[in-house]
Structures are given as structure tokens and as C-alpha cells.
């Protein structure tokens, strides 16, 4: 079964005043372990798609299923809980709680999930080591670089043991080196631990690292290609 599946997903903003058709009949299916990139020019609907599959917004029509469970009918509280236990999020910026250290930020999501307190610290440290921040555990976001903050955000997303991680333009505010570094980490998590990633981007170097590229144009799927990332872009 697909880990994530959309059927004729559409979103119209401001339907009563100036309707904006942000997404038109998008039907895609993503399997466990995929490393998928959603690409397209600015305004093509990438964020809208990720918000809908992440349960942050409601579609105008169509369905979102996570492992066969439809999230459409869920109430606010139920949906919040669903996100907490099933989906990891990495946003473009301001991901972290500024008054918490890296370790506290990672532990916090496990606390929300009521995970075992004893193991929380240990797991947070382990995840921070995995994203290369083993020696930055006690730093708070204002003391960290943008790249470091994004890596903490990835560690936090992993900490909740989600079914998949959604990352909306995670590298958009990073320089090339930090961006590639973040991509390396995401790719390693994908290969070593079979973590499913869906990330949006309009950065060609990032697109080159994806194994599946879904291209949106004006809110509709323009192309959907699977490929071997080692061969580079072979459209």
C-alpha cells in the first residue's frame, strides 16, 4: 500500500472573491522509502500540495490518504494528533523554539508524543550526532547557523518516528555548502534508515539529488519521473 496517496486533489483559495486555483486534480502515490522532490516555479502550488498532504489545510475537493487512512474528515484535535504521530515537518525557516537548546527542541516533540522520558535524552543526542551536531547539543537557535538550525529541524522530524517527512523548501535560505550538507544528511537517512522524504524546491542542484521528481505547473502535475540520482538529470 502507498504510504501517501492523493486522488484528484484540488485547492481553490478565495472561492467567493478572487478564486485562485492553486492545485488542480493532483493524483500522486508515494511508496515507503522514496526520496521525492516536488518542483516547479514559484506559485506553481508546491507549498499548497505539501500543506494538504501534511494535514495543515483542507482541500477544496479530492482525497489525501496516509497508509489508506483518509484524513479529510478529521477534526482539528484529531488531525493535530495525527500529524504528531505520523508526519515529520521541516519548514523553510523558524522551525525551532528559540529558547530551547538543540537537544531540548528534539526532545520536545517526543515529550508531546508522551514517549518514555528516560530514553528521550539519549535518543535526542543520538539524532543530533547523526545530523552532525553532536557537539552543538546545548546551543540555542540564535547561536546556530541557518544550516545547523535546519539540521536540528531534521533531527526533530526524525525523533517523532513519522511515516514520512515533508520538507517545504528546506534549503531555500541556505548557502550552497549548507544546502548540500543538509541534502547529504537527508539522503543518508533515506538510504540507511529507509526514511521517506517529500521535499519541495526550485533549486536545480537539489533537484539533481532526488530519485523521483514531480513537476507542478499552474497547480497541475506536468511530469512525474523516477530516476537513478547517480546518473544525474536525464529527463
Amino acid at each position: 500500500m502507498a504510504i501517501l496517496k492523493t486522488t484528484d486533489l484540488s485547492k481553490v483559495y478565495n472561492p467567493d472573491t478572487v478564486p485562485v486555483h492553486a492545485l488542480r486534480d493532483v493524483s500522486v502515490s508515494i511508496e515507503k522509502g522514496e526520496f521525492t522532490s516536488v518542483v516547479g516555479p514559484s506559485g506553481s502550488g508546491k507549498t499548497t500540495l505539501l500543506n494538504l498532504v501534511g494535514g495543515l489545510d483542507k482541500p477544496t475537493s479530492g482525497e489525501v490518504e496516509v497508509e489508506g487512512i483518509r484524513i479529510a474528515g478529521m477534526k482539528d484535535r484529531e488531525l493535530t494528533n495525527f500529524r504528531l504521530h505520523n508526519i515529520g515537518f521541516v519548514f523553510q525557516h523558524y522551525n525551532l523554539i528559540p529558547v530551547f537548546s538543540a537537544r531540548e527542541n528534539v526532545s520536545f516533540i517526543m515529550l508531546l508524543q508522551n514517549q518514555d522520558k528516560e530514553k528521550m535524552q539519549e535518543r535526542a543526542d543520538e539524532l543530533l550526532r547523526a545530523v552532525g551536531l553532536g557537539n552543538r547539543k546545548d546551543a540555542r537557535p540564535p547561536q546556530m547557523s541557518g544550516g545547523e538550525q535546519q539540521r536540528v529541524a531534521v533531527a526533530r522530524a526524525l525523533a517523532s518516528k513519522p511515516k514520512f517527512i515533508l520538507a517545504d523548501e528546506p534549503t531555500a535560505s541556505l548557502d550552497t555548502e549548507a544546502a548540500m550538507n543538509l541534502l547529504d544528511i537527508m539522503q543518508r537517512m533515506n538510504q540507511e534508515q529507509n526514511v521517506t522524504f517529500v521535499f519541495s524546491t526550485h533549486d536545480q542542484r537539489v533537484i539533481d539529488r532526488a530519485r523521483r521528481v514531480i513537476t507542478l505547473v499552474d497547480g497541475a502535475v506536468d511530469s512525474d519521473e523516477h530516476r537513478d540520482p547517480d546518473e544525474g538529470a536525464t529527463a
Binding site: G54, L56, D76, R77, T80, N81, R83, L84, H85, I87, F89, F91, Y94, N95, I97, P98, I109, L112, Q113, R156, S160
Partner: peptide, 15 residues
């Protein structure tokens, strides 16, 4: 914005 992120990742409004 911070509240938005916290609600997104699954923190309940009451908390």
C-alpha cells in the same frame, strides 16, 4: 509564526 510551527508539528492548542 512560532505558534503556527508548533501547531503544525502536532502541539495541541490547549497545551
Amino acid at each position: 509564526r512560532e505558534f503556527g510551527v508548533l501547531l503544525s508539528v502536532g502541539m495541541r492548542r490547549v497545551r
